[in-house]
């Protein structure tokens, strides 16, 4: 009688386990991308300073590139920071509780966080869709197309939402 139940639970557990492992890996991957973009942003500033102050020549693209690269790095880094518990929270009250009340409170907090991330992920993809479909540019001297700057936000926040689900599952099992 308990045999089929056990089997399904095991497979359920292994599905959840592999989901969590998969998300952890993806979050590390986006973090690697983020670190690369942060480094590229720094290099672009160094290049700009060199060209502007040493060569005394025109600088056109560096300011904007740095802004977009580092912004992308920050948003792509959010899932990794969630995975490693780096987003600061006030846990005095839940820590002082035990058992069911504690679990309910933690779940409520997680759902609020997840809700926000999903809303932002939706908004990000919508912004990306608009920028992409209407060929928006930034309107500056360099005037690059906008969507490559928005895409990392959409990816980063989507992965943040997926990682959030993984964190909730990790807490439950």
């Amino acid at each position: 009688m308990s045999q089929p139940y056990d089997v399904s639970e095991t497979s359920e557990r292994s599905v959840i386990g592999s989901y969590i492992r998969c998300m952890d890996t993806l979050s590390v991957a986006t973090a690697l991308l983020a670190a690369t973009l942060l480094a590229l942003g720094v290099l672009a500033v160094v290049h700009m300073v060199f060209v502007r102050y040493i060569l005394v020549e025109s600088t056109v693209w560096q300011t904007e590139f740095t802004t977009f690269a580092i912004t992308a790095a920050m948003l792509l880094g959010t899932p990794y920071v969630l995975k490693t518990g780096g987003h600061v929270a006030v846990t005095v009250l839940p820590d002082s509780l035990r058992g069911l009340p504690k679990r309910i409170m933690q779940l409520a907090a997680h759902l609020v966080g997840l809700g926000f991330c999903l809303a932002l992920a939706f908004g990000s993809w919508y912004y990306f869709y608009e920028a992409f479909s209407m060929d928006w540019t930034t309107g500056t001297a360099w005037n690059p197309v906008l969507w490559p700057a928005v895409l990392p936000m959409a990816i980063g926040i989507s992965q943040l939402s997926l990682q959030y689900v993984a964190e909730i599952l990790r807490g439950e099992h």
Binding site: G41, V42, T67, F68, S124
Partner: peptide, 26 residues
């Protein structure tokens, strides 16, 4: 406000002034 939230959010982070912060932290 929800539909255009991505644009509002992006506008708040993507400024050449704020990018000084990650670089100082680095």
């Amino acid at each position: 406000e929800l539909i255009y939230f991505g644009e509002t959010f992006f506008g708040n982070v993507a400024s050449f002034g704020f990018v000084a912060i990650p670089m100082f932290i680095l």
